[in-house]
């Protein structure tokens, strides 16, 4: 289940078409030696890599997610952000991962933040919008809760913890806070908002802990790639190693699992 919920991610300054193509292949062929495995849900790349991914993933069901809105800081003008969002959507991204303006949020300008999310959502068109709160910069759980509510009310399809560039990334406490916000939002509005913890999740054990949290807080309905994702780059291989361990009985080595 974890594998099908992964947004396989590469967000590095040194990303190149070659790297993205290789990652796209990995997304569709996690471990061919073990038939019957699912593919990951999506791959997550920078805007200029969307066209490359579009070609590389043609014919698969894997979605293309792109970070936009001056990821990871978000420090640019709204018009530049909207332009970026339109570019990635036109280039074929089916999901957009935006960052909120944390500076504005912390200085209390919630209206600005909400409006920005609303406008980005409009620019997304049919594409799903994931709103990154960057909880590591929001510091308190109260802020996390407030930002979650704000994002959901402004039109987020998913709320997401982190960019992966700021520590701490996803932590159990933060994720639980956000899940509770999602639950309360559902109770109030009847809308199911998705959740995506990202950054620092690299082992199957952590993955299962988060799944349990989702099941306990939101229920089985959320245990689908439509409503729950992991943003991760190395989680998939650890899950694969545990699956093979279950089948063969002995512990595995990363030498036997392709990097990308």
């Amino acid at each position: 289940m974890i594998l099908s919920m992964i947004d396989l991610t590469t967000l590095e300054g040194k990303d190149s078409p070659g790297k993205v193509k290789q990652l796209c292949y990995k997304a569709a062929h996690l471990h061919d030696q073990h038939p019957g495995l699912p593919t990951v849900a999506a791959i997550c790349v920078y805007p200029n890599m969307v066209p490359v991914a579009k070609v590389a993933l043609a014919g698969t069901n894997i979605k293309i997610a792109s970070v936009a809105t001056a990821f990871p800081s978000g420090m640019t003008t709204l018009s530049a952000k909207l332009k970026e969002v339109r570019f990635v959507v036109d280039a074929g991204a089916e999901e957009v991962d935006m960052v909120i303006s944390r500076g504005k949020f912390l200085s209390g300008d919630l209206e600005f933040v909400g409006d920005e999310i609303y406008q980005v959502k409009n620019a997304c068109g049919a594409a799903k919008l994931k709103v990154i709160l960057e909880t590591g910069e929001l510091v308190t759980l109260d802020n996390v809760r407030r930002a979650s509510d704000l994002a959901m009310n402004a039109g987020a399809d998913f709320i997401k913890t982190s960019t992966g560039k700021i520590n701490p990334c996803a932590t159990p406490a933060v994720v639980l806070t956000m899940l509770e916000a999602v639950r309360d939002h559902y109770v109030q509005t009847g809308h199911r908002i998705g959740m995506k913890p990202a950054g620092g999740i690299s082992t199957a054990k952590q993955g299962i802990q988060y799944l349990v949290m989702v099941r306990e807080t939101l229920g089985q309905a959320w245990l689908t790639p439509d409503l729950f994702r992991f943003g991760a780059s190395s989680l998939a291989n650890d899950v694969l190693m545990q699956i093979i361990k279950q089948n063969q009985g002995n512990y595995q080595s990363s030498d036997y699992f392709s990097l990308d």
Binding site: K14, S16, G18, Q22, Y25, K26, D32, S258
Partner: peptide, 26 residues
């Protein structure tokens, strides 16, 4: 060409005149 680590041709020994090419950055 257009190969990545997850291709079987990259992982398994073929023992024939078959070269698989990948690119790298660093």
């Amino acid at each position: 060409t257009d190969m990545s680590q997850s291709h079987r041709l990259v992982q398994e020994e073929i023992f024939g005149p078959v070269l698989v090419i990948q690119t790298f950055r660093t």
